[in-house]
Design a protein around this nucleic acid. Structure first.
Lengths: 205, 205
DNA sequence: GTCTATAAAAGGATAGAC
DNA sequence: GTCTATCCTTTTATAGAC
């Protein structure tokens, strides 16, 4: 009786988790497609295939819905960083992470950040999981940036924070979608182009 | 009687023009601050200090309101390009224009483009003034890019269109606002930093 | 927890007097 | 053209039955 109960609860929780994952995947995609303001809760519910009221049982507000998706992406980034080969150089690690974020963006899985005074911003800043993740990621990237600058691989004249922001910005670079719309290059080519303009610059060498 | 009429009409038209300019300035600022979706017509009316219904006498819809602001910025860009010193090198011209767009952005006067499937996009694409302006600007920049590549000033390996998009993207580069929020650098320093990462790249030289 | 139904509010747009 | 007042749709959010 007891073990049966345990299994049943576990199963239900598994179902619940699966549904929440489905919700977050949809939210993630919609955030990437149209941004927070243009995404509607009705749309999310319809896409997931559940009633809107059910959505609100899982997440108390539209902001929390979006925040959950952002936390998910942040977690993926943390996992990706943890799985990087330990013997790679700092510059290689940085390049690999940036490439990964651009692949995510081209795949339509990179939610675009709220532009400035969105209500989402406040929710994110108040979100412990998100901010902790962001800081952990920033700490890793920051250490690699300083190491790469010390080794003469990255321009040591640039403030590390400027480099960090420049790398973060690749995750929402409109050049990716512009080139994709142009149809002249495939995803891999687009990524290499932006990698080149980012690290080598536009000037001739 | 006739001349008095002419003067009166001209004066009224001047007033009308002045009011529309005020409207567009407000819309421009709000578009820069929060984007098209987050900007409300009520907000615009309140900021300008007129009734919402009056706004709709000037512009038939929210999309047209925003489009008017975008056309205004495009016109400013065309004027700026026309006024560039004729004896400057193509690379110098490109750098000057990019710097100017970033100054606009830091001043909060660069409306952020609609992210993808905004209703604003269709309106802009259907807008003759906007599209003509965009093409004129692109023609100038494109010619300078190819000349700079031919002279060995810009990397000739990069497709000109990729360079063009990369330059356009500086006008909405989140790195600018990130660095500004950081408070460690003034506007001029921020612009030079982004100019450096854009043209020189992140790698050491 | 999931649903249907509905509230409650916001936002785009218009009517009609002046 | 400007205003007040209002319409109507969309959208966020909740009530209440099962």
């Amino acid at each position: 009786m007891k073990s049966s109960n345990v299994v049943k609860v576990s199963f239900k929780e598994q179902m619940l988790q699966a549904r929440e994952d489905a919700i977050i995947r949809t939210v993630n995609r919609l955030l990437a497609e149209k941004g927070f303001e243009a995404m509607t809760v009705d749309e999310v519910a319809a896409d997931v295939g559940i009633a809107k009221a059910s959505l609100y049982k899982h997440f108390p507000s539209k902001e929390d819905l979006a925040a959950a998706a952002m936390v998910g992406v942040m977690r993926r980034a943390q996992d990706y960083i943890k799985a990087l080969p330990a013997d790679a150089t700092p510059l290689e690690k940085l390049r690999t992470v940036v490439r990964w974020t651009m692949e995510l963006k081209l795949a339509g899985e990179m939610p675009s950040l709220p532009s400035q005074n969105s209500t989402l911003r406040a929710t994110l800043i108040a979100n412990r999981d998100y901010m902790d993740g962001l800081m952990e990621v920033s700490d890793h990237l920051g250490a690699w940036i300083e190491a790469a600058q010390a080794h003469g691989a990255l321009n040591p004249q640039l403030p590390a924070i400027a480099v960090l922001y420049t790398l973060y910005a690749r995750a929402c670079d409109p050049v990716l979608e512009f080139l994709k719309m142009g149809g002249q290059h495939n995803d891999a080519q687009i990524i290499e182009l932006v990698m080149s303009t980012c690290f080598d610059g536009l000037n001739a060498r």
